[in-house]
């Protein structure tokens, strides 16, 4: 695998292979010294044009557990915030000698543009591009679902027949997009729920079902309920009238939590708006796997870094 730009570039075997490799990586964390020498001497640059503490820390932890050197450039207090272009920033750090760029950027397609540009030779890992995709989040979500459903017997399995309901601001969500495409590849079925204003135009051509009624969706007893973060600035742009109305219609509140089937797991990519799209009781309940998602994120990112950096052009 040369780059990881979109989960749509992954076929089913490759995707399952990444999840399996992440299982191996997770085992490393249980060792006395949770570190592998695999990427010793390789350098990973985290290039974060957009602030994202959790994704950046997750990639840093993943790279360090593989013994890679890590350079991090984040938006605040760097040349990035002084208007330096993607091209110049990428070429500048590339000139220092790097093997992979982990790119977070506010513009959709930025990782694709960097990978296609020939500005640099390094592998490019998309760590979130605008409202397009967040492939490692999609992978860690799939991993978390598989692990929660199958435990130690997860290796080699897909998500055939798993029913996932994703709730909220689909329109602006790169997490939702990566989940939709990857879950389809892995055999799960996806149901999208949200106000009509936050369901993208043309969503009917996606491999999903869609609705606007959260209670009806939950009555179907899905295996997974994934709540998406809602940004309050959407209210100003007339996507919905008020936070209270949003929470009432599309929030996973305590009453809805109580009605969930025993097997339904609750997911959230974070950071959470407690009291808006998810109640504290839901976030902290036994069926919430939110913290597992965070832990699994490191394993998934170790697997992805390993695949793009091990050997020359090896793997998928």
């Amino acid at each position: 695998m040369k780059h990881l730009l979109s989960v749509r570039d992954l076929d089913r075997d490759t995707a399952v292979g990444i999840l399996d490799l992440a299982e191996d990586m997770a085992d490393v964390a249980t060792r006395a010294v949770p570190k592998l020498p695999t990427l010793r001497g390789r350098t990973v640059a985290n290039l974060f044009f957009e602030d994202s503490t959790r994704t950046r820390l997750s990639f840093e932890a993943a790279a360090k557990r593989l013994s890679a050197d890590v350079i991090t450039v984040s938006a605040k207090g760097s040349s990035v915030s002084k208007g330096e272009s993607l091209k110049d920033t990428a070429q500048t750090i590339a000139a220092m000698g790097i093997d992979a760029v982990v790119l977070r950027h506010g513009a959709s397609g930025a990782a694709r543009v960097l990978a296609d540009s020939h500005w640099i030779d390094a592998a490019v890992i998309n760590a979130g591009d605008g409202t397009h995709e967040h492939p490692t989040q999609g992978l860690l979500d799939a991993y978390t679902m598989r692990k929660t459903l199958h435990g130690d017997a997860a290796r080699g399995k897909s998500l055939d027949g798993v029913r996932v309901t994703i709730v909220g601001d689909i329109l602006h969500s790169r997490v939702a997009r990566s989940n939709v495409w990857l879950l389809q590849t892995l055999g799960a079925s996806v149901h999208l729920v949200g106000p009509e204003t936050l369901l993208p135009l043309g969503v009917d051509s996606w491999p999903v079902t869609r609705g606007t009624d959260l209670d009806a969706a939950l009555a179907e007893n899905p295996d997974v309920v994934m709540m998406l973060r809602v940004q309050s600035e959407r209210m100003q742009a007339a996507f919905f009238p008020h936070e209270r109305e949003y929470a009432r219609q599309w929030g996973l509140d305590d009453a809805r939590l109580a009605r969930l089937a025993p097997h339904t797991m609750v997911m959230h990519p974070g950071p959470m708006n407690r009291g808006l799209e998810i109640s504290s009781a839901s976030a902290d309940s036994a069926r919430s796997v939110v913290l597992h998602q965070v832990a699994n994120g490191v394993s998934i990112r170790m697997a992805v870094l390993y695949l793009v950096l091990s050997g020359s052009g090896a793997g998928a």
Binding site: G109, D129, G130, R177, P200, L201, G202, V203, W206
Partner: peptide, 9 residues
């Protein structure tokens, strides 16, 4: 349209 929604543009 459907394409802009997919591309996140």
């Amino acid at each position: 349209g459907a394409l802009s929604s997919e591309l996140g543009l």
